[in-house]
Design a binder for these strands. Structure first.
Lengths: 352, 352
DNA sequence: GTGAAAGCGCTAACAA
DNA sequence: TTGTTAGCGCTTTCAC
């Protein structure tokens, strides 16, 4: 390979200078034409310049432009989870990511995914924030305000526009947020089970470090209370998402003198394990024990039996977050923060 | 607009100049200290400069540095799929992404995910390539060389180092590649079924536009041939991944005068649907019909019955791709392209 | 309408 | 060793 001009990349890319030279105009005019402003240009200039751009296959250098404009067309997605890479691993966040990346791209923005692990040193984050790489940030904190404050504090201190996804940050940060009504979803699912005549409903809770786990649990309790059905702590199980804990929960529930006739698992993933375990013990679903999940991930409709669950509009969450952050980045007079709570919907399938 | 501070972000970030001023040294020295070269500095300078950096909480502007060095510490991941966002949606690519992002991050690189849709206009890609945002590219083309040539052609023309994942590009591009031996995996899985006494093995193929689909199919055929078991076209079904096609395939196979005793689905997702459909028809798995899948996504071990399948080292694929692309970016004398074929492994579980 | 030129923040020659 | 300074490619003020 011949190494004529540039250090590593072979051919030198044309610059705005080259375009100007070829078109026989000044660099200013080229810039005006490209950006359609801020000064007007004659049609003839436009034509000449555009021809030169085509001929050279010229594309502006994003870094030069970024340096000058302090605008990078890049939005960071920061996740803050216990496992470094659960961003991708769960179908749940895959939905959010898909919505987010898609909408950003439509609007000409790039998406820099940066997964942070809870408890991890925040210095890499600091570096990312201060390096002026990002126009805006979408952050997905899964814990309640106190736990995520350190993270959000750093982001706030950076003065980079930020939108929270799933959980709002503490009010004082003034970040907009896109969340969904998981309490209501759990309420609806529980109410459905009650309407089917179930009076003893086991609840597999999930990792209690997640706020959403508390919200969903509250929905379950509210529904019971509202329908005057006795709530019993022995029906509730779980401190984490693990398969073993979930299976132990099923065993525990079945060992009760009056075992539940339905089990509400606070995530689809756990619901699958619950069904798995019930079947291992030769208990049919939904005939002997009904099971409902939460999230409506793709597999929910595929599973055998298909899973009754609460549909969370994951795609829409991502899209709305993209819209909000771009609005904030592009609007100079800061838009007042807003919190959007998206509705969820109970989906009845075979398992309950 | 007040020129003193910053345009949108309130406080102005400190620059290298500020550090130099505070430390009472020249900007060159600050740069030397930060980058530990290219000129030596005295320990006293190092101390003074580092103190100033701490005091100001200084972090270099990535875009200024990028403009100067032509190095952005950013690797693009370009996927080329039929659906715009299947990157995230499948557990399959989630595994690859996790490995890739994780390793890049460890080595101080950022990851810009850019999903391309097959048939889509390549102009956005062109823009990304020419805008000097990326140090390197990891591309995941799912089709065979001729179909992906246009895409790879553009990448090659940009002279940005590139590594192919899953499928190698045509030789002439000279890209390194990380792939896995899916033909062998299908061979092993088929051989296992044969060893269990199955002689009529249905094959659900998947979307034939994917190269991997052909590879896996070839493995199935090879195993049959090698063991002198009759291959019959009526045992093969499918032109896409859809649930309906898969279900129809099961119905078709069962309707044969001599229906298969085992079904090999070329992806775990389809295997789930196959089992689903078999159960709908009250056929027990694996007693009446054995089922094996391919990929070993997370759900495979969770499913009821747990799925016998071919384990693909998705994480390792991503990690190795990261290693290769960084090596290429950071090594000036171009490293010769290499193709790495990772081994796969048949995992026996309950379904077969 | 157009051109000249001053920087954005950084690195690395070139001087000292 | 350290300081001075010329750019990287772009936008935009200022002059014409």
């Amino acid at each position: 390979m011949t190494k004529t001009r540039k250090s590593s990349n072979g051919a030198k890319r044309p610059t705005l200078q080259d375009v100007a030279k070829l078109a026989g105009v000044s660099t200013a005019v080229v810039s005006y034409v490209i950006n359609d402003g801020p000064r007007p240009t004659s049609d003839e200039m436009k034509l000449r310049v555009n021809k030169a751009i085509k001929d050279l296959n010229y594309h502006p250098n994003a870094y030069a432009r970024g340096l000058r404009l302090k605008r990078t067309k890049t939005i960071g997605l920061i996740t803050y989870d216990f496992s470094p890479m659960s961003v991708y691993m769960s179908s749940y966040s895959a939905g959010i990511l898909t919505g987010l990346t898609g909408r950003l791209r439509e609007k000409g923005y790039f998406n820099l995914v940066s997964p942070m692990t809870i408890g991890e040193d925040l210095r890499p984050l600091e570096e990312l924030l201060q390096s002026e790489r990002l126009d805006g940030i979408v952050v997905r904190p899964i814990q309640a305000p106190p736990a995520t404050d350190a993270l959000l504090e750093r982001i706030a201190a950076s003065h980079i526009p930020c939108v929270c996804i799933e959980r709002p940050g503490a009010d004082r940060f003034g970040f907009s947020a896109v969340t969904y009504d998981d309490r209501r979803g759990a309420y609806d699912a529980t109410e459905y089970l009650l309407s089917q005549g179930h009076r003893r409903i086991g609840y597999i809770r999930g990792d209690t470090r997640f706020v959403t786990v508390h919200e969903r649990f509250a929905g379950y309790q509210n529904a019971l209370r509202h329908h005057r059905v006795r709530y019993s702590e022995e029906f509730v199980w779980g401190e984490d998402w693990s398969d073993s804990t979930t299976r132990a929960g099923v065993d525990h529930l079945l060992s009760l003198p009056e075992p539940p006739t339905a089990i509400f698992a606070a995530s689809d993933g756990m619901a699958f394990v619950v069904i798995n375990q019930l079947r291992k013990r030769h208990i049919s679903v939904p005939e002997e024990v009904a099971v409902v999940g939460f999230d409506d991930i793709e597999m929910a409709s595929l599973f055998v039996p298909s899973l009754s669950t609460v549909h969370v509009p994951l795609l829409e969450i991502g899209q709305l977050a993209a819209d909000l952050i771009i609005e904030q980045v592009e609007t100079n007079p800061e838009v007042p923060p807003s919190t959007h709570v998206l509705p969820v919907q109970f989906i009845r399938r075979e398992s309950a």
